[in-house]
Design a protein around this nucleic acid. Structure first.
Lengths: 210, 210
DNA sequence: CTGCACGCCGATGCGCACGTCCACGGTGGT
DNA sequence: ACCACCGTGGACGTGCGCATCGGCGTGCAG
């Protein structure tokens, strides 16, 4: 009844439980990203992974759960990266740059997963909606905390501004990628974080000369 | 081929062609917005409009075409509004404010239609993807033109910055609405357009006198 | 008054994709 | 070398939703 302590790789047919699971994750991610949730067929995922459907259902109870597992990974990764970026320095200008860099890097590195978070086609499913919204709301809240501290703005205002910046990062990064990365990542980050920093920089005073 | 100049409203069962069509549009919009494309059933739309399915298919060849018709209306409306906002003044600060106001007003006024454009769940369908992307790309290009003129930045850079601002408007407006409009629309627009304007204002010089 | 034509409705076909069963082949133990 | 076992794979049932066909009530002309 103890887990079989297999440590060899019976290549091809037999894989240890966790390796198989990882492979299924990879295949599912590819298919979901390529086709979207609805167009993605469980048959395709199984075929892509080189196994048959029953094994897929031995690892995941259903299509939605599989999707949610992938989604959770991506969401947590983004949130954690933003948290790390905010904590990486005390210089707010650098904070902005690092945070923007998170979005560009994420979009750039995992061309795959970001579509699950930013272009999901299952928003009507509350479980998915909840996860996706959490990304924006959590990251925005983390940013808002810094903003509120440094500007003294009301929480609602800070949240709105933080959401604006986060949204800007998301959209800008995706747009940059879609345009074939005509600019290098660093150039793009410099531009967008410059825009953000100038915008947020002197905010305590709501009206500025000219 | 001339439109039937019917102007009476034979209420209940019989309606003139164009009135019926309008009613179907309304019903379809409600259902698509409430449930998303995939979860929306043609049966629901027909029932919502108080007619049966065959009549629906007498007006539209299929589900997708119906959706596209609604989507086109919304997309054109947004693009046109942004164009109008940019042309409404020569003062760039006011331009930014007016443009941001477009997104907030659109989200606020037609709580219905904006979800089709900003939260569509049919992105895998090229016809839809094309329409939705056109909104961001057209509006961003219009903004980018102004930016490039006034800052002398390269087209790629202007496009990226413009897309950033447009994306900020989209996300901020939706977030504002989701948060139950804790701020008035004008307050929110002031905050976000302030953020944008400060950011874009002195862009030609990459570093600003402190 | 009666026959006709028109347009709407309930009921149906069809295809697709999720989620499960029966027969097979390889593996390890004796 | 034989046998028991477990995981695999192809084939299947089922439910759902898009898209379409025969009956019917209504209004009009003769």
């Amino acid at each position: 009844m103890s887990d079989t302590p297999i440590q060899d790789r019976p290549r091809g047919g037999r894989l240890p439980r966790s390796a198989r699971r990882a492979q299924l994750f990879d295949a599912a991610l590819e298919v979901f990203v390529a086709n979207g949730y609805h167009a993605a067929a469980m048959d395709d995922i199984a075929e892509r992974a080189g196994v048959s459907k029953p094994v897929l259902y031995q690892h995941f109870p259903g299509k939605l759960e599989l999707y949610l597992a992938l989604l959770d990974t991506s969401c947590d990764q983004v949130i954690e990266s933003v948290r790390a970026a905010l904590a990486s320095t005390e210089d707010n200008k650098e904070r902005v740059r690092a945070t923007m860099d998170v979005f560009f890097s994420y979009v750039n590195d995992s061309q795959a997963a970001f579509r699950l978070v930013f272009e999901s086609d299952v928003m009507n499913e509350p479980a998915v909606r909840s996860r996706v919204d959490r990304v924006t709301s959590e990251t925005a809240s983390a940013v808002a905390e810094v903003i509120a501290e440094d500007t003294g703005l009301a929480p609602v205002a800070s949240e709105l501004l933080a959401t604006s910046l986060v949204g800007m990062g998301q959209v800008a990064a995706r747009s940059w990628l879609d345009n074939g990365s005509a600019l290098t990542k660093d150039e793009a980050v410099a531009l967008v974080s410059g825009l953000s920093w100038r915008g947020i920089r002197g905010f305590p005073r709501t009206d500025d000369p000219s």
